[in-house]
Design a protein around this nucleic acid. Structure first.
Lengths: 252, 252
DNA sequence: CGGAAAGTTGACGCGGGTCAAGGAATGTGG
DNA sequence: CCACATTCCTTGACCCGCGTCAACTTTCCG
């Protein structure tokens, strides 16, 4: 099948950190030349994930970080009595799987919300590379520090903020992250369901739905199912004055 | 002043990772011999912190991690409108300051709850040492992964759990951490105020007070101001079935 | 076309926040 | 040693934000 082979080759060319448009947002940020190639050489590529397909599950003997290349993921954990807490959403250029570094198995689950592809970075090879390339080690630490900061901002959100402040913060975070990826800051599709949003923000799904309606009444945004248009970002920000920006782990 | 000099020498001898009883809980875990000495050599010691004294503040150009040697710290962040969210409490052997790794300044504040001493670990020297000692790099990653896992467990707690489940989880976490340090798992002093507990758990101070009274009525524990005696740990755990254990960043 | 999943909207009630008052421990100056 | 203030904690009364329950609509998908 020569046709398939050709496609694979094309993929391999396209999937290098050096030519990846997310480069600056992602782990390679700050790396150059041969260092970039070394990082490239340890990355394993996989067939894209289908919606609903898991990248890893809690308890999996996971030994890799993953950088999202396209699509989006949802990370969540579950309790023994079965209910689920959404921990975050991962957009292209962001890293997922950090909680697997503690003891060799993941403490959370990660599932594709849409068709998504990821770059797999095995821990042990990444570790080795970090000794060779000091700036990679430093970049790893930055990514990790960012994740910790983001989680802390989220703790503040859940601990102190009212329902409308939470939703405003969530939309602003998405907006900023899309903008950083060269997409529109005001018009985007939500990759996740109301269920997921509510769960993530510690709110009932009905509350989320009502808040969207309420925001629309106030001319803060327009919303039609998953299509959102932010109209008055300034007032949304004002409404949410004072919280550190909520974002996921990224480079830089 | 020969007397002072002698004291200082004693301190220096006592304050080495090799002889520290927290060794196994802390960053040096897994290191031996000369590696341990190298780590020791980059640690800066400081005069103990007094209650209420800050280790660092949000925005400080912080360039260090800190390992708590004795006492306890509270980490918190603030919003522009002034209110405060407690992010965690740090006990001996635990690491604080990870969120300073992302961009060279801390995103949170850390303050001593009682007289406390810490070991200061400058990032840049730690980075260098990580290239030299691969197992230190791996241990750093474990510590960081653990912090992320703990934060995720906390997100679940705030997002999904009722007030009594939150307090039960908090007490069990403290109990387990004291036990790991060779202290009693059933009798301990709370180093933090009701205010801090409530803030940390996303509850009003009055709610915390009422819950303590309620738990006491149910013979789950005895409490007198900050002195707590857990009577029925099994029922506390049952009450909190299903949440991952909440703990702070530690070694191993 | 039918059945399920996702989203919306309204009615109701409870968990826990808020307000207020008072007690207990600790500190401070006389 | 005592009056007094201050801080920390407790307890009660009230009430509101948001969860829960339920009915309905819309979209999705085989």
């Amino acid at each position: 099948m020569p046709r398939k082979e050709k496609l694979l080759n094309l993929d391999e060319i396209k999937f290098s950190c050096g030519t990846c448009s997310l480069n600056e947002l992602c782990l390679p940020h700050g790396l150059e030349g041969s260092d970039l190639e070394k990082l490239d050489s340890i990355i394993k590529h996989q067939p894209p994930l289908q919606p609903g397909q898991h990248l890893f599950r809690s308890g999996d003997a996971g030994q890799s970080l993953y950088a999202v290349r396209s699509g989006s993921l949802k990370t969540y954990c579950t309790t023994k009595n079965g209910d689920e807490q959404v921990l975050g959403f991962t957009l292209p250029g962001e890293i997922v799987g950090l909680d697997g570094m503690s003891n060799g198995q993941y403490a959370s689950n990660s599932v594709a919300l849409e068709t998504s592809s990821v770059c797999q970075l095995p821990f042990n090879q990444l570790d080795e590379l970090c000794s060779e390339i000091p700036s990679l080690h430093r970049q790893m630490m930055r990514v990790v520090g960012k994740e910790v900061s983001a989680d802390h901002a989220m703790l503040l959100l859940l601990g102190k903020r009212s329902a409308d402040e939470r939703l405003a913060a969530f939309l602003l975070s998405l907006s900023a992250r899309y903008k950083a990826r060269g997409l529109s800051a005001t018009e985007f599709n939500l990759p996740m369901s109301r269920q997921d949003i509510g769960n993530y923000l510690g709110l009932a799904i009905e509350t989320v739905s009502r808040l969207f309606a309420h925001f629309q009444d106030q001319k803060l945004l327009r919303v039609n199912r998953r299509q959102v248009t932010l109209i008055d970002i300034a007032r949304l920000e004002e409404m949410f004055e004072g919280c550190t920006k909520v974002s996921s782990a990224t480079g830089s």
